[in-house]
Design a protein around this nucleic acid. Structure first.
Length: 492
DNA sequence: CGCATACGCGCC
DNA sequence: AAACGGCGCGTTTGCG
């Protein structure tokens, strides 16, 4: 058995040396691998680090414990916490899948990225001029401190309804700018400036530095990076590429498929709400998903007490915010902020929501109670998060832990589901010897993106959709939307 | 000068 | 009075 840290990196090295199935080569099983970092992460996903140095000190009170010592300890804990199945059947095989994805990378249209950079630069220059003109002087627009002085001291813009930052300064964030938009002409320029500067500085520029000689970009997936079981992505983070706006679409269009291939995306529809419906056993929500109804519309009909036909887009919008918020343990204050309602209206809607979906409330109370009594919560697969703060006497601290407690079993099960799908899909690709025809490239929490050879794309999309929808059974159907296109911006 | 922090913001 | 869960990363600013 191979016991070490960072098996994903070791797989990558072996594979790059020309050993393509280094991980699961003949005779080797997932059971033959034991990544110590991943093991300790399953035991407690909130350690500061998952390095030998850190864990040796923490658990063995010495500079360097042997891998054998660390292994024995972790092995015992995995067994005690019933995490062995998750570890051996999901996380370990996943490490190799991630290695393949990282090595492959996604192709970038370098020229488009360059020209996008130019276009953004030109537009930013115009905006900067306009902003200086309105301000009556030059200043650093990227400095919230300086911007705040310009807006609220020089220009004396009314600060009614504007919040303060943690440090006590008047906020200049996007929400603030929206509220004061009609109070001064400078604001609309600032809003556009913010969007464009973000795009250029966070995405367009850094991405160009990360393109390899084959014009491909390789992210690194962190398997031990979250408290809930999700993956994270870094250098670059390909899990937060902008979407929606015209500029965002232009950026996404720079991620392309190789000649003879297309990109295909598969996204789980409402996976977290479906998981919540299943875990809570709420009959109304389960029925809605069983009948393939529009869940936000159904929610609106319930909280507004109107028939489905009478639900307006505005009612649906509020219901959607409620549905998302509930998964996160949102309170009336947060809901009022995001919905535009006042506090007491917001409070009423939340009460109405839990009145309509009583089992969800009951389930959440049950989870909170578990967090308080045990100091941890688990999801259906034993994935665990320690929440000792739930027992805190500082109310704010306890409330924060309770929200995390409510969210983890939902977000964590959704994460398990897509991880299991990834492992299953990789197996099926191998079985069909499609390694070069069906390339898993990206995983974005509830979505997978592939690069697929034109000749098998029809068959492969069907297969993958079926595998994703069937990989894990819950109380409601799991649905996957499929989109195909030559680039990430034009998938449809 | 590097580093940590505050602030802000992109995604699911 | 009051922070809606989970991330990574950019720029600015103040510190040693």
């Amino acid at each position: 058995m191979l016991i070490d840290f960072n098996l994903k990196e070791k797989f990558k090295e072996l594979k790059k040396e020309g050993n393509p199935s280094a991980g699961l080569r003949a005779g080797k099983l997932p059971k033959d691998y034991f990544d110590l970092g991943v093991a300790f992460w399953l035991i407690n996903p909130d350690e500061e680090e998952y390095t030998s140095e850190y864990l040796s000190k923490k658990f063995f009170h010495k500079e360097r414990a042997s891998n054998e010592e660390l292994y024995k300890f972790a092995q015992k804990k995995l067994k005690e916490y019933k995490l062995e199945k998750l570890f051996y059947d999901v996380e370990m095989p996943l490490a190799e899948v991630l290695a393949d994805m990282e090595i492959r990378g996604i192709k970038s249209k370098v020229q488009s990225l360059k020209s996008l950079d130019k276009d953004l630069g030109g537009q930013l220059q115009k905006l900067t001029k306009a902003i200086y003109k309105e301000a009556g002087k030059t200043f650093n627009i990227n400095s919230p401190k300086q911007l705040g002085q310009i807006l609220f001291q020089s220009l004396k813009i009314d600060i009614t309804g504007v919040k303060k930052t943690r440090g006590g300064a008047i906020s200049t964030d996007i929400g603030t700018l929206m509220t004061i938009q009609n109070r001064h002409p400078i604001v609309k320029y600032l809003l556009e400036y913010r969007e464009l500067f973000k795009l250029q500085s966070t995405y367009v520029r850094p991405l160009q530095d990360l393109i390899d000689k084959d014009a491909r970009v390789h992210t690194t997936y962190i398997q031990t990076g979250t408290s809930t079981g999700r993956l994270s992505s870094q250098n670059p983070n390909l899990q937060n590429i902008p979407t929606g706006s015209d500029w965002a679409t232009k950026l996404r269009q720079t991620f392309i498929s190789e000649k003879g291939y297309q990109l295909a995306s598969f996204d789980y529809s409402q996976i977290e709400l479906r998981v919540l419906a299943s875990l809570s056993g709420d009959p109304k929500m389960i029925e809605a998903f069983n009948n393939d109804l529009d869940i936000h519309k159904l929610t609106a009909a319930n909280v507004f007490n109107v028939p489905l036909e009478k639900v307006t887009p505005e009612m649906r919008r509020l219901a959607k915010t409620l549905n998302f918020g509930v998964v996160y343990g949102m309170g009336a204050i947060a809901f009022s902020k995001t919905s535009g309602l006042n506090f007491s209206e917001a409070k009423k809607f939340i009460e109405e929501y839990f009145n309509d979906f009583k089992k969800i409330k009951e389930w959440q109370e049950e989870i909170k109670s578990q967090a308080r009594t045990h100091g941890y919560v688990t999801n259906l697969n034993g994935r665990r998060r320690w929440l000792l703060e739930a027992t805190s006497t500082f109310r704010g601290e306890a409330a924060e832990a309770e929200r995390a407690a409510i969210n983890m079993p939902v977000q964590g099960l959704a994460a398990d589901i897509i991880k299991m799908a990834m492992v299953k899909i990789a197996e099926e690709i191998k079985k069909r010897k499609w390694e070069d025809k069906v390339r898993m490239l990206l995983t974005i929490h509830d979505e997978l993106i592939f690069e697929m050879s034109d000749d098998i794309i029809k068959e492969a999309t069907k297969l993958i959709q079926r595998l994703m929808e069937g990989v894990y059974e819950i109380e409601v159907p799991i649905r996957v939307n499929v989109k195909i296109g030559k680039n990430w911006g034009d998938l449809n």
